[in-house]
């Protein structure tokens, strides 16, 4: 399992807890978001929570291409570098 940066890991775990009450401890880059056991509304709310924390915005077409937390991390990395 490849690891996400500590910072992103905490961000994802917190966001998941916030929208679902689930504490999953740790997320791997390979973890498929669809398999977290969150419904589609909660997944979108999780994305919103992450966006707000980072001050970025993912577009609708980009979202359709995200399957794993690794995908999400890569996309966020691109956006935050651009912003900086």
């Amino acid at each position: 399992m490849s690891a996400l940066s500590q910072e992103l890991n905490v961000l994802f775990v917190d966001a998941i807890r916030q929208v679902s009450g689930k504490n999953i401890g740790n997320v791997a880059a390979e973890q498929r978001i669809a398999e977290l056991g969150l419904d589609s509304v909660s997944v979108m709310e999780m994305v919103g929570t992450i966006e707000e924390k980072l001050g970025v915005q993912l577009s609708d077409d980009e979202l359709t291409k995200i399957n794993t937390f690794g995908d999400l991390a890569a996309l966020l990395g691109k956006l935050t570098t651009k912003a900086a």
């Binding site: 669809a34 589609s40 997944v43 994305v47 077409d61 979202l63 359709t64 995200i66």
Partner: peptide, 12 residues
């Protein structure tokens, strides 16, 4: 409906 969820592009 527009794409509204993560992934699942083929089904959409």
């Amino acid at each position: 409906y527009p794409p509204l969820s993560l992934g699942k592009l083929d089904q959409y």
